[in-house]
């Protein structure tokens, strides 16, 4: 009798047999969404370079994905990926990392990559907290929530990542929660086919740290919270800001065409070569 193998297992390194995430972590939902997007687009893992930073979600591609994988320092995956993409413009360069990595310590690289419109697909796992280091406040932690570094409740306001990256100049920005794996797969597919900087923000559950800090509970309770608080962007645009307090706006925030950096470089080098002849 042949043991059943998960259909997406073919994209994983054979010797990596188990994931390191906690029970109920949303990272695995995003892992499947990424791999399913690759499968549905009929892409090969050799078409990709995956780049990640530091944090739980940085371990989504590393070492699981059977592809060229660059696991980098905290906050810097977008900067590394910029060099990779300019060196290999024909490859899909995907960054997978968390909200702390990409918007706190690495925020500057994220907005500048969006401004440059370099062809990266960034899957940003936003769990609203620092999971790996033990539940500290992130720039995405909702105001008022008590964490180990905000024991009296966070006094700070949080980033609204997707619209921030729209303002920075990205060609494609979408946000979904882990309650929307099918929509998420579609958004990742769109990000991968977009010529330009694509950010897919994944609002995800950290049942261990965020579940405890927010008192929402475990994975299922947080997923239910995502379901009941998600508002489609088309609907949200007609709502008052007061009505949107505590809501998660999901959908496509931007989808535009503009010149992409690595192909602009290819064009420039080509035109200079022609000019010399």
């Amino acid at each position: 009798m042949n043991a059943t193998v998960h259909p997406l297992r073919k994209y994983a390194r054979p010797h990596v047999t188990r994931t390191t995430t906690c029970p109920g972590c949303g990272n695995g939902i995003a892992t499947q969404a990424i791999l399913r997007a690759i499968e549905e687009l009929d892409l090969r893992m050799d078409d990709f370079v995956f780049v990640s930073g530091i944090g739980c979600s940085a371990w989504i591609p590393s070492p699981f994905f059977a592809a060229d994988t660059l696991h980098t320092t905290h906050g810097r995956p977008v900067a590394f990926a910029t060099g990779v993409k300019l060196g290999l413009p024909e490859k899909h360069v995907m960054v997978v990392s968390g909200d702390g990595d990409l918007t706190a310590i690495g925020g500057n690289h994220l907005i500048h990559a969006a401004r440059r419109n370099i062809g990266l697909t960034v899957v940003l796992m936003n769990n609203g907290i620092y999971g790996m280091t033990g539940g500290q406040t992130a720039p995405t932690t909702p105001r008022g929530i008590s964490t180990v570094t905000s024991p009296y409740g966070s006094l700070e306001h949080s980033f609204d990542i997707a619209p921030m990256i729209v303002s920075a100049g990205a060609a494609y920005v979408a946000r979904w929660t882990t309650h929307h794996p099918r929509q998420l797969t579609k958004a990742i597919k769109k990000g991968l086919t977009k010529k330009g900087f694509a950010l897919i923000e994944v609002v995800t559950q950290c049942p261990v740290q965020f579940g405890r800090a927010s008192k929402l509970g475990g994975a299922v309770e947080i997923l239910k919270h995502f379901k009941s608080n998600s508002v489609r962007i088309e609907k949200a645009r007609k709502m008052d800001p007061a009505e949107l307090l505590g809501k998660i706006v999901v959908g496509e925030f931007v989808d535009i065409e503009k010149p992409e950096l690595s192909s602009e470089w290819t064009r420039l080098i080509h035109s200079m070569r022609e000019g010399r002849q």
Partner: peptide, 27 residues
């Protein structure tokens, strides 16, 4: 299968099975 964070469930879809039921779970 799609939601399992640990890729621990495989659903074998037959041709006679209908479209996925989870499509509308986004609002």
């Amino acid at each position: 299968m799609i939601y399992c964070p640990d890729m621990a469930i495989v659903v074998h879809k037959d041709a006679q099975d209908g479209p996925p039921a989870g499509e509308g779970s986004d609002d």
